[in-house]
Simulated scan of single mutants.
Amino acid sequence: MATMFRVCFLLILISPALAVLCNPADKKALLQLKQDLNNPYLLASWTPDTDCCYWYTVKCDRKTHRIISLTILDSVPYTNFSAQIPPSIANLPFLDTLILHKLPNLTGPLPPAIATLTSLTYLTISWTNLSGPVPDFLAQLKNLQSLDLSFNNLSGHIPGSLSQLPKLTSLRLDRNRLTGPIPDSFGYFNSSPALLLSHNQLSGRIPASLANQDPTGIELQRNRLEGDAYMLFGPNKTTQTVDLSRNLLAFDVGRVEFPTSLISLDLNHNMIYGKLPEGLKAVDFLQMFNVSYNRMCGEIPQGGRLQRFDVYSYFHNKCLCGSPLPSCK
């Protein structure tokens, strides 16, 4: 009996502490955010009589109990989540992760309130119907390591100010409606982020300044880019994936020194000419390779991994020959 009494007494002492884990200001901010998002079913667990550290989609810091992560993901498309990102998002100043994903009825532009979340290291707003420009104010988020605004309806030019993000390791702006050139300032990132800018309407030449960068990957496919792409390559780079397919690029591939770190190289559907360089034989870990639908000529270098790819990786060129294509005459 005495033991049971002590256990009950301890539970009474502990339970108030458990009830107040959630910071009152954060709880108030989340309830306001829920209201501004039109009280979606996804946030049904957000009720005033429960601890916000245990709400669905929310994560608290274990020591401070401030809200540090908010992930709103609609796993059942086309539910009743219909809203714009409200200014009240700014009332969560300790957020280091904000993810809004697969919310097809999330509309409107990116609000300036996002710029006040200066603790953010991961910002993902993807697979929504967000529209308007990629705003300059994102450059104020100096702690960002990953910025993902893919699969939206964003339009206009890419702001060069994004190069002012000193810690960025990944930039995803793919599958939007962005136009204009790749900013020259992207050659001056401190951190050489992976650049995923594919499936837009980008035009002009790839800036020569990108020769200064050494990203793990660069995806520029399905745009309207012209001219040369030599600056993306080089013997001292450690880039692993490059996809430049379905553009208007025209350069002599024989003058390119490809990094031996390449795992995937896709140049199909351009106007690239010249002979494939012998240096490609030294790319030991190449797993995907496609240079079809170009204007290349000459014998495919024999050796390395180049004969592991079938004819479809090479066909529809001006006069490429040699295995796996027919032999040169």
Rank of each mutant, 00 (worst) to 15 (best):
N105P: 01
P104V: 13
G132M: 10
S119K: 10
L103F: 12
T121V: 06
W127F: 07
I114Q: 02
H101Y: 14
L123E: 05
H101F: 14
T121L: 07
L95V: 12
A115I: 10
P109A: 14
T97L: 13
G132F: 08
P133M: 12
D136Y: 06
L106T: 12
P133V: 14
I114S: 01
I114R: 00
P112K: 02
I114P: 00
F94V: 04
L117S: 10
L103C: 08
S119D: 14
L138M: 02
L95H: 10
L123I: 06
W127M: 05
P135V: 15
L138D: 04
N105I: 06
N105D: 15
N129D: 09
T124Q: 08
S126T: 06
K102H: 08
T124Y: 04
T118N: 13
D96T: 12
T118G: 06
L103V: 11
L130K: 00
S119A: 11
P112Y: 00
P133Q: 14
L117I: 09
N129Y: 02
T118A: 09
S131K: 03
N105S: 12
L103T: 06
L130T: 07
N129C: 08
I125C: 03
T121F: 08
F94D: 12
F94M: 06
W127C: 00
L123G: 06
Y122G: 03
P111C: 08
T128E: 02
L117V: 09
T97H: 07
D136K: 02
T121E: 11
S119N: 12
S131Q: 09
N129R: 04
L130F: 03
L95F: 15
T116A: 15
A139W: 05
T128V: 05
L123Q: 01
A113W: 13
P133S: 09
L98A: 14
A115W: 00
G108Q: 04
D96M: 01
L110P: 00
L110F: 03
W127D: 02
K102F: 08
W127P: 00
I125P: 01
K102M: 10
T116F: 10
L100A: 02
F94L: 06
F94I: 05
A115Y: 01
D136W: 02
A113T: 09
P111I: 11
Q140T: 13
S131V: 04
T128P: 00
L117K: 00
T128I: 05
T116S: 13
T118M: 12
F137I: 10
I99P: 06
T97F: 10
P111T: 09
T116D: 13
L106P: 04
G132Q: 11
P112E: 04
V134C: 12
V134F: 00
H101Q: 13
H101D: 15
L141N: 06
V134K: 04
Y122Q: 03
L120P: 15
Y122P: 00
L95S: 12
L95N: 11
L141G: 04
A139D: 14
V134Y: 00
N105W: 10
P104Q: 10
S126M: 06
F137M: 04
P112V: 04
H101N: 15
G108D: 07
V134H: 01
T121A: 12
K102C: 10
